[in-house]
């Protein structure tokens, strides 16, 4: 059971990494850079969108770059 769960977790890792790490990382970068965002969009939402989409692409293609 544990093996099954871990296998699934590692298979989905690019997406999890995009959401769990890259999203907040991009959010922090946006915050520190002081780039103006349209309306009142929170930086975390933008970060999560970038991290999530990039992670999903990496999951599908097997490549980050």
């Amino acid at each position: 059971m544990a093996k099954f769960i871990l296998t699934r977790v590692f298979q989905a890792m690019p997406l999890l990494f995009g959401l769990g790490f890259l999203g907040p990382l991009f959010s922090e970068i946006l915050q520190r850079s002081g780039l103006p965002l349209p309306a009142s969009i929170p930086t975390l939402a933008v970060g999560m969108a970038i991290g999530g989409v990039w992670g999903a692409i990496a999951l599908r293609t097997g490549r980050w770059l």
């Binding site: 871990l6 590692f10 999890l16 769990g20 790490f21 999203g23 907040p24 990382l25 922090e28």
Partner: peptide, 28 residues
């Protein structure tokens, strides 16, 4: 397996507590 899980837990934990840049620039 343990190393990977601990590594990811540290990265995710730091990222969600406002220290993603530190985790990225000191370890990742």
């Amino acid at each position: 397996l343990i190393y990977q899980l601990v590594f990811l837990a540290v990265l995710f934990g730091m990222a969600w507590t406002g220290h993603a840049l530190e985790a990225a620039l000191i370890w990742w």
